[in-house]
Amino acid sequence: MTDLTPITALGGTIARVETFGALSLTENPAMALASLALRKGQSVPSPFGMTLPEPGKWTKSGAIGVYWMAKDQWMVEAEGRAEEDFARVLKAEVPEASVTEQTDGWAAIEITSSKGAAPIKALLEKLVNIDAGAFTQGSALRTGLDHMSVFLIRRAEDRLAVWGMRSSTETLWHALAVAARRLEDI
């Protein structure tokens, strides 16, 4: 184990948490991320015994989550494994595919609602040009948010994850927090 101390994308040593009414924002630096891209002509593998999801979808099994990213390409999440070389673990699962470490390419912000789906929907409506009503549990997509490219994952009716480019996490947090604060009344 290295003796260097990591920092989060927001520059802290512990994850930032902020609550606005029904919505809580939590930085999730423990989530590992790696990309999985098929080689030409390769059959679709089943890493960790999982069926890779269709476009626009996210699936989860245990601590592993997978979402579709592009044709023949997925992102694989692993809870609590950000300090490991998770890309190597994934590569061992799919030795024929191209795997690239993405853990620190992005930063995950987990948003939870204490009042069910409505606050999440209202938040989405303020942030991204998607049909928020149709973005139900298990949905995942990439879209623009305040001029940043993000992945959105609806982990549950009351939970939404936003993966943003690590370097602009401050701006992303600002955008999410401002929108959440303005929804405090609902």
Binding site: S35, L38, R39, G41, T100, E101, T103, D104, G105, W106
Partner: peptide
């Protein structure tokens, strides 16, 4: 047979 992904921030 080529796969690309940005790792600038990683």
């Amino acid at each position: 047979d080529v796969q690309l992904i940005s790792t600038t921030d990683a």
